[in-house]
């Protein structure tokens, strides 16, 4: 009798524990998956931004030097194979600090944004480029 009650209690306890753990796991797995996915997207966005930085580093400087201050434009969306995320890069060219020569120094700001389940996300990379084209 005592052994049966214990068995029932044991079963109830085990079931509850199992249910609790399963509940926790059901929440943890998607959260982890989302976090991994988010960091993947973040990494991907960083790589896209860096690609554009490298692209404009390789371009002739005079193409940047002829742009006015705060000139910006949006590029076409970028999709990465294996994901559904659409990355939207935009570029802004600014003058350097006060007193600097805009024919020699420009600031490049690349922003990559994308939509996420919990709202829009973006990464920004900035770099100063100097004319060393001789």
């Amino acid at each position: 009798m005592k052994r049966r009650g214990l068995s029932l209690l044991e079963t109830v306890f085990a079931s509850g524990l199992l249910a609790g753990v399963v509940f926790m796991l059901f929440n943890l797995y998607p959260a982890s998956a989302l976090a991994v996915r988010r960091s993947q997207d973040h990494l991907q966005a960083d790589q896209i931004a860096q690609t554009y930085v490298a692209l404009y580093q390789a371009e002739p400087f005079h193409q940047l030097a002829q742009l006015p201050n705060h000139h910006s434009w949006t590029l076409s969306e970028v999709s990465v194979e294996g994901t559904n995320t659409k990355f939207k890069p935009s570029i802004e060219v600014l003058y350097g600090p006060d007193g600097s020569d805009p024919d020699v120094l420009r600031q490049l700001r690349v922003t990559v944004s994308w939509d996420w389940v919990r709202g829009p996300q973006s990464v920004t990379q900035e770099i100063f480029l100097v004319d060393l084209e001789n």
Partner: peptide
């Protein structure tokens, strides 16, 4: 770990850009 790694990679890229920007300035 993935988050930490992606943060470090991201910071590494940014740090590199900052160093290059310092040279440019």
């Amino acid at each position: 770990n993935h988050l930490n790694y992606s943060n470090r990679v991201s910071n590494g890229i940014q740090a590199q850009n900052i160093a290059e920007s310092t040279l440019a300035l």
